[in-house]
Each structure stands twice: as structure tokens, then as C-alpha cells.
Write a protein that binds this DNA or RNA. Structure first.
Lengths: 155, 155
DNA sequence: GTGCACCTTCCCATGTTGGTAAGGTCAAGC
DNA sequence: GCTTGACCTTACCAACATGGGAAGGTGCAC
């Protein structure tokens, strides 16, 4: 199976398949005489696994661990569950941060006339005239989740 | 005022101040004979504005617009509010995506024994044996928010 | 044998932030 | 005056995951 076919069968772009190979997430595929990569059903399976893990927001390092556990027949489900639950906590934390920002901004926006006059509590909040209640979780000053990571996969 | 003082006064790292200058978010500061950048109160104010906007998760392009509106005395608060509310919608959308992932994963994890045996619905879900309910919003296949943005500002 | 779709590798760009290195400047203390 | 240490300058590298493109080889159908 060519890389293009592997790509459509797995839902992972050819570009990414080569990338995953380059970072060792998947083993180098065998090559035909032409130099073309050649994939089989097991490879598609592995790529699908990776894609689904990405869809669930796992980072590459975690996926690496999950792949290791996947092919480790002596694994304990506790290990897998631990990774998953740690990731759930991270996802929820990030979601909370985003929601906190949204809340703070909605609060400012609610006080803004939204008319043709220039007076605007949102601007004043950004200027520092109004204390912004980013009630970042106990003890921590506001941390920020990186805004707009630019690329977003669509498939 | 040196860049270091401007940095601690505004909460924006010196590195970032230079970066913002390089991308035209702030005008090039005047230089002293030594070549040192020199900042005044107005610059600190502008930097603080930018920092607070970043803390609220605004992207650079939006901040550019907000800065323009800030210094436009003929602005209408409606323009500002529109930007803010669009951003709120984006934040909430991203938060929803993250929560959906967390939900899907929690669902799988709930079915996982988490013991010493290898059987694990989480792995099976990633393998594709169990349909993962990422109930991505109407019509769309699952899109993914970039995982692990890596850098996180602490201040 | 021609043409087109596909493959190969290699390089570049993204966006925001931090790190580091090599060298210039400033102010305080001796 | 000279040294020292803190600060400044520019310039480059790194990160992450992904896409884009160029230049050239391969495979297959007509």
C-alpha cells in the first residue's frame, strides 16, 4: 500500500505519516525497489490509533506512551487509565482557563453600551482602569493558554 | 526608562517588548546615544494594555485592532464590543472542544477497570473498536484544538 | 512513448516565547 | 582612573504539529 492509500485509509496525511516516522512514533516502513514506502493493515491500524489519540487531544509524548502500552501485552489497564485521567485533568484545566477568560470578558462586555459612543468599559478594563476578575485558580496568578495555535486539522 | 524597567513596570518581558516592536505592535522606541531603548509612561500603559489583552486570550491580530480602537477617539463602543464578543464565542468554542474531548475520554475511562489486567476499553477505543462519541458540533467532523501549546506564561 | 498521478527528499513558514552567545554601556565602589 | 557586575544590543536557535512547494524519480493507462 502506497503512502497515499495509507493516508486515506487512516485519516492521517501523507505529510504527517512521514513526520511520525521521522520522530520515531512509527517504525520506518519497508521500501519497495522504487524507494516507495509500503504499508500493510497493521500500519493502518497504528496510524488510526494515533489519529484518534490526537483527536482526543493527547500530546505526542502521551501518544508514545499509549502506543507502548498498546503493544505491551503485560500492561495493566491501570497504567492506561492513569494516563487518560491525567490527560482529562489537563483538558479540563485548559477548558477552565478559557472559560475564565470568556467570563471575564463577558463581564466587561455586559457593561459596554455597544453603541456609537466611544465610552467603553472593555477598553477601560484593558487599560487597567477596571480590575479584571480572572479568578485563576487558588494561589496562582493568571496563567494564559496560548491563544490561537493557528493550524487546525479538518479532515 | 530602560527596557528592563519597562518590563517590570508593565509585566511584559524585555524579549517580548522587542518582539512586539519587531512585528509593529508597538512603535519603535526612541534610542539613547548608547543605542538603549527609552520608554515613557505612555509606552508602559500601552504594554500593560497588550498584556491584559493577552491574558484574556486575544490573538495578536485582535490586539492590533483593539489598539487601533483604543487610540481612535472617534471609535464606537459597538466596534470594541463586537471584537470582544466574537472572541468570547471563540473562547467558548475552544473550551467546548476541550470539554468534549475530556467527556469522551472520561466515558472510556469509566469503563476501564484500572487494575493489573491488560484489558482496557480506553485502548480499544483508540484502536477503533469502540466508537468514540466526540459529539463535535453539528455537521463538523471532529476538529482538534492543538494539544499542549507548550509555553505558558507565569509572571 | 507520452502524460498524469503519485512518490521521494529537502527546505521554508507558521506564532509566541524562552535561551544563549558575543559584544557594548552604565554606574557604583575602590 | 579602573574594575566589576548589571544591564543593554543584535542575532541566532529551539519548540510544536502541520502545510506548502520545488525538483526530480516511478508507475500505470492509453
Amino acid at each position: 500500500m502506497n503512502i497515499g492509500q495509507a493516508s486515506s485509509a487512516s485519516g492521517v496525511s501523507a505529510k504527517m505519516i512521514r513526520y511520525y516516522e521521522s520522530i520515531g512514533l512509527i517504525p520506518p516502513s519497508p521500501r519497495r525497489d522504487s524507494g516507495y514506502r509500503d504499508y500493510g493493515a497493521a500500519d493502518i491500524h497504528r496510524l488510526g490509533f494515533i489519529r484518534r489519540a490526537r483527536d482526543l487531544g493527547f500530546a505526542m509524548d502521551q501518544i508514545r506512551d499509549l502506543l507502548r502500552l498498546w503493544s505491551d501485552r503485560g500492561r495493566s489497564s491501570a497504567e492506561v487509565k492513569a494516563i487518560a485521567l491525567r490527560h482529562v485533568a489537563e483538558l479540563e484545566e485548559r477548558a477552565r482557563e478559557l472559560n475564565d477568560m470568556a467570563e471575564a470578558l463577558k463581564h466587561l462586555a455586559a457593561a459596554c453600551g455597544g453603541d456609537e459612543r466611544p465610552d467603553c468599559p472593555i477598553i477601560e478594563g484593558l487599560e487597567g482602569q477596571i480590575p479584571i476578575a480572572l479568578h485563576g485558580h487558588p494561589g496562582r496568578a493568571s496563567s494564559r493558554t496560548a491563544a490561537r495555535p493557528a493550524s487546525r486539522r479538518s479532515r
